[in-house]
Design a protein around this nucleic acid. Structure first.
Length: 119
RNA sequence: CGUGCAGGCCGGGUGACCGCGGGCCGCGCGAGCGGCUCGAGGAAAGUCCGGACACCGCAGGGCAGGACGCUGGGGAAACCCCAGGCGGCGAAAGCCGACGGAAAGUGGCACAGAAAGGAGACCGCCACCGGCGAAACUUCAUCUCCGGAGACGCCGGCGGUAAGGGUGAAAAGGUGGGGUAAGAGCCCACCAGCGUCGUGGUGACACGGCGGCUGCCAAACCCCGUCCGGUGCAAGGCGAACAGGCUCCGCUCGUAGGCUGCCCGCCGAGGAGCCGGGUGCGCCGCUCGAGCCUCCGGGCGACCGGAGGCCCAGAUGGAUGGUCACCUCCGACAGAAUCCGGCUUACAGGCCUGCUACGGAAA
RNA sequence: GCCGACGUAGCUCAGCUGGUAGAGCACUUCACUCGUAAUGAAGGGGUCCCCGGUUCGAGUCCGGGCGUCGGCU
């Protein structure tokens, strides 16, 4: 997942949080926001994994897996959108016990929610 | 071989496909593409010590404050390491120890207890003096009666003592003997501690002789010795962006203010507050360093010296992942953010070397 | 990443120079009331965050660990 598909600036995060819509499930919260200046570029993702989720190793591993999932799903997402995916407590343990395909499904769920409302 | 102890090391590997960050080279005006190569740890952690480095205009002196504390050595330094001493634990190998000074001063030792440290004593014990005492006892005088003195007991006085006394964490060196009216390092032997002299050792200290007489607490204040300016890469530098108004203090009397707390000393023309506006970005610092590996030499060792070789993460929303296969069952703690040296804490499993005692086996 | 503060009863906090832990609210019981509240009286409740060390003795002093909350771009 290259840099052009990530959110890289604090102001981008602020914009998504403040002006985007949010969708939540048991383990994930997704903020979605359509960019105004660039409607043709690919979707971009930012991640938020707080220290409540665990230590640095655990949080890094979780972020890698979420990026891998995003990479799989990216083709099916609408262009010109910025997303911030927030992990909720318990997600890391759930992934450890239920495996990567389960995580892929959960992320797909929350993205379907955002697509369903149409933005 | 098993248990125990010490030291050192590893802490997933191989292959396939799809991906990520840095550097170099090539192509392209450019976004980028292709190739090669490198890409987390022994603790990267906690941020507990010590530095390097940077800024605070120059860091100057003193006080205050803080840190450390057996000896010698190593090291840039250290709440670090090595060797040794002393003390404690263990059957041993070995392990642990903030381990200067209580004979400089101040202070504390609750409750209990007579007393918690320079007071000398509440009870008790003992000598002497005085008074009282029915009988018995000893002795003097006596023919006998009567009587005197002693001993003993009680009371009072003046002294001597610290052996003993419910207590307490701790009781004025300990144990035994002599000695005495009763006692006491008063004297003696041994032991513990202190001082001093001698010998050995660089030294801590050890051993021996002599001497006097002895509580504990400095992780209580403190004394002595050594060391320390503060802040921290969110330090700091360059660029980009914004650069308006009001109020108060002061203007060269070195005053306002600054140089971490105070004083001296120095600098000294701007300083403080409120509202508004901008930034919330790019580049540098940023990784070659008290560096790593091998060999040789010195040293018990920490370590030092020399030669040769190597380049070993530099991200900036933050890079190692996903899917598989095999290795009989693959697994602990855990992720660089300026960089080093240490300490401490966490850690499945496994390997190597040496040592000790006990058990077993073989020769 | 760097720097700092705190942890004591169910809650909010005291506890100075080490001597055996308290206050307010809350809780329980009783009294007062027809009943409740308020008030009054009595009472219960603590690994002083954890592990070591110094000391005769540690909530207090000294190390180490854990947790919580702040500040700095």
């Amino acid at each position: 997942m290259s840099r052009r598909h990530r959110l890289s600036r604090s102001r981008d995060f602020d914009a998504v949080y403040r002006r985007g819509r949010s969708f939540s499930t048991r383990f994930l919260v997704l903020y979605a926001f359509p960019r105004e200046d660039d409607r043709e570029g690919g979707p971009r993702l930012g991640l938020a994994v707080s220290r409540k989720l665990g230590g640095a190793v655990e949080r890094n591993r979780l972020k890698r897996r979420l990026r891998a999932v995003f990479e799989e799903l990216r083709e099916g997402l609408p262009a010109g959108h910025d997303y911030v995916l927030v992990a909720r407590p318990g997600l890391a343990e759930a992934v450890e016990s239920r495996g990567f395909p389960w995580l892929t499904e959960r992320v797909a769920d929350v993205f379907r929610l955002s697509a369903g409302t149409g933005s």
